[in-house]
């Protein structure tokens, strides 16, 4: 039924950029869900790293409360870094990236679709898991919402910045540390804003300003990162 409906609506064969955006998003989500192991990797990594801290440092609640936010943010950063390679590498290797570059649609929206899909399968699960890990690290109750909101704003920025780094390095044979060296310095402002926001709510101060700054960072990253990624991809396939 729906198929024939779309056939009627799409009298001519051309499709809008929005449709192409949706098709790319759907495809990437499908790839992610079909390769389940890769899907769970960043989440498991996040969980394991965070749970090492109480064991490695001290199970003392006061100390844990002090370091909780930092630990959560740094682990989220590393987990996101771990999953970034999936963003363009397999597409580069099997040639799908070339098809994407040669599509008549704006590469800006195509990379945005891929980044959104990456965040949905790697960033969002971290945000959802974070309250549990916050509990493990004795995060004070009043800080939970701030932590979730800042992670919700911060993890998409990590995916967006990461996309630039991966796009630049996708054609290199041995990437090793170079990806981390490109992305981690760029991620420092997010790390600072995120930990400051949660820190200030724990001190009883207002957090509106910090969250607004993160929102602004997200807006800037969302508008510029796909552009930079698209340009970097064109260079990488050269």
């Amino acid at each position: 039924m729906t198929e024939s409906e779309t056939e009627i609506i799409m009298g001519e064969r051309g499709i809008s950029t929005f449709e192409a955006f949706r098709a790319t998003l759907k495809r990437d989500l499908l790839v992610a869900f079909k390769g389940r192991n890769e899907l769970l990797n960043p989440l498991m990594f996040f969980f394991i790293v965070v749970s090492l801290f109480p064991i490695g440092i001290t199970p003392d609640r006061e100390v844990l409360t002090e370091i909780a936010v930092g630990v959560l943010w740094v682990s989220a950063l590393l987990a996101s870094l771990l999953s970034l390679d999936n963003l363009y590498r397999s597409d580069y290797e099997d040639g799908s990236l070339e098809l994407l570059l040669l599509s008549p649609h704006s590469l800006y929206f195509m990379t945005l679709a891929k980044i959104l899909s990456h965040w949905l399968v790697s960033g969002l699960p971290l945000v959802l898991l974070s309250p549990l890990l916050g509990y493990m690290l004795a995060l004070p109750t009043e800080a939970y919402w701030t932590m979730i909101v800042t992670l919700l704003l911060g993890t998409p920025i990590l995916s967006l910045l990461g996309s630039i780094g991966v796009a630049l390095t996708v054609s290199l044979g041995s990437r090793g540390l170079i990806l981390a060296m490109i992305i981690l310095p760029m991620s420092v402002p997010i790390l600072i804003a995120g930990t400051l926001a949660v820190g200030s709510v724990m001190d009883g101060n207002p957090v509106g300003g910090h969250i607004a700054i993160m929102g602004a960072m997200l807006a800037v990253a969302a508008s510029l990162a796909p552009l930079a990624s698209a340009a970097a991809l064109r260079i990488s396939v050269n």
């Binding site: 051309g14 495809r27 079909k34 099997d94 040639g95 070339e98 098809l99 008549p104």
Partner: peptide
């Protein structure tokens, strides 16, 4: 929109 390209790497994802 009028071009179809097929390279050495055929553009077929292995998982799908």
């Amino acid at each position: 929109s009028s071009l179809l390209y097929m390279g050495h790497r055929v553009g077929v994802n292995k998982i799908l």
